[in-house]
Computed example of a mutant assay.
Amino acid sequence: MIGIIDYGLGNIAALATVYKRLNIECIVIAKGIQCKEADKLILPGVGSFDYAMKKFRSSEVYTAVEDAVLSLKKPVLGICVGMQMLADSSEEGIEKGLGWIPGKVLKLVSHDPIKVKLPHMGWNTVTPISDHSLFKSLKNSLFYFVHSYYFEPQNKQDSIAITHYTKEFTCAVNFQNFYGVQFHPEKSHEFGMTLLKNYAEI
């Protein structure tokens, strides 16, 4: 059972629709007690880092999610800002991140704002850099991005995929039971469906 965390942000309905099409059971978690029903969790996110962190930490689900992933070691997949929240900190704000994957979130810089605009918005090739089950059957696939910041893991081995926009950067991470992708699999058609299916099967 996949649990999609509802703390007021993210493309929750779109993620639920993908899993319905895949015939994989999922639940939208709006109350802490619902975490018990899920085997794996998804932490979606949109908007600014500080706003997302405040919304999550003040939500009904925060304590239960923290217990599920830290004590019970349930896998959790952060998407977009949800991935950035897994870090220790972000250049976008002053709030502390969750610190579940050692690293920091840095701002993308365009040296030619006319040709290379920010935010990074649109389809980009994602290249796995390890034989990771999250990217099974997804070598050099296209995913949809909307962001101006990226996750830089403290440990290079936690980076499992890269992309290029203004520079080469990590766009997917994994450390222990924590996973993150900078792109939006729920907006990435068949490539996104495959990745979300892979996550369910990990």
Rank of each mutant, 00 (worst) to 15 (best):
Q84W: 06
F151G: 04
Y62H: 13
A87Q: 05
T125W: 03
L72P: 00
N124E: 06
V173E: 00
L142I: 08
I94Q: 14
L98D: 03
V116F: 13
H189D: 14
G45F: 10
P102R: 09
L70G: 01
P75K: 02
Q157L: 09
N11V: 14
Y7P: 01
F191H: 14
G180W: 04
I5Q: 01
F191E: 06
L43G: 05
W100L: 13
L86P: 02
M1Q: 06
L118W: 11
Q34C: 02
L86W: 06
Q34T: 05
K40Y: 04
G47M: 11
E25P: 01
M53T: 10
R21C: 13
V46L: 13
V65R: 02
L195V: 05
V46M: 09
L108V: 12
E95Y: 06
M121F: 15
L41F: 05
T166C: 15
H189W: 07
V105L: 07
Y165W: 11
P153A: 12
I160M: 01
D112M: 08
A87M: 09
L72W: 00
K54Q: 14
F145Q: 05
L77F: 01
S59F: 08
P185Y: 07
K115H: 15
E92F: 11
P44S: 12
K55G: 03
Y179H: 10
F49R: 06
L15W: 05
E95G: 09
K36S: 14
I94G: 06
C26Y: 03
K139F: 04
N124D: 10
L41K: 04
K187T: 15
S90I: 13
H147G: 05
Y165N: 08
S71Y: 03
V181I: 13
I27S: 04
Q34H: 09
N174C: 13
H147S: 09
Y165S: 09
K40L: 08
G180D: 02
W123G: 06
V69H: 01
K187M: 13
C26T: 14
K156S: 15
L196F: 04
F135D: 01
L108N: 05
S159A: 15
L142P: 00
Y149M: 04
V76Q: 00
L118Y: 12
N23Y: 09
F169D: 07
F191C: 11
K96T: 14
F135M: 05
P185W: 06
D6P: 03
W123I: 09
G93W: 07
I12M: 10
K197E: 12
K31V: 02
D112A: 15
T166P: 04
A38W: 00
L15F: 11
